[in-house]
Design a binder for these strands. Sequence first.
DNA 1: TATTGTTGATTTGAAAAGTCAAGCACTTTA
DNA 2: TAAAGTGCTTGACTTTTCAAATCAACAATA
Lengths: 106, 106
Amino acid sequence: MKEGERFCPVYAAIELLQEKWTLHIIRALLEAPRGFNELARAIGGCNSATLAQRLARLSELGVIEKKVTSHMPPRTCYSLTEAGRALEEVMRAIEAWGRRYLRVPG
Amino acid sequence: MKEGERFCPVYAAIELLQEKWTLHIIRALLEAPRGFNELARAIGGCNSATLAQRLARLSELGVIEKKVTSHMPPRTCYSLTEAGRALEEVMRAIEAWGRRYLRVPG
DNA sequence: TATTGTTGATTTGAAAAGTCAAGCACTTTA
DNA sequence: TAAAGTGCTTGACTTTTCAAATCAACAATA
């Protein structure tokens, strides 16, 4: 919450997007729906405990959707909801900025 | 780095923006240049140790600029560089998304 | 047939990151 | 004269993230 205790959706959006791995998850899911481990690999090796927590939170907020297609062996599919897909504009802005202003360090 | 060890500017941009407080800092500085404590208050009470570290990193990457106008009593002014100002588009996208999709919880 | 490798998680203890409170040396305000 | 403000730094403490082990069931390999 913060910012004088009244709810600010922009502050809340920033709080959400700045959680570690969240933007990477969005980026990967914008590309294609994925399973749990597949997603972990796609975003560059997030550990499963953190990933599970992020996915739970994003699901709870209605940004992503989880479909279980098999129980044992486990098989799940995570995809973006409409709200999630709307983050494509944020991603595009970040991509454009990164390509324009970030260079290989050293 | 990650993503097969070759440098990906988009991955790097995400890594930068997902550091805690970074987006809040950008947002506050897009509004106006500010001093250290003023900035801490504006973004909702980030502690000084973390803030100092974030500002150092952003400065190093050329996103913000630090000007010392007085040594004792100390007085500094942080502002965005061109690269920093270019993040306005990212902020605008985040703002639009937050207002459209985030509601007061409960 | 037996081993190995998948799948989506959860649990562990240890490492890393972030927070908190105090303090610095000095000016301005009350 | 005292209190409050400036921009940080330091060391102790708490929270978050981490890698590794583990699970049951099946597929593919040896």
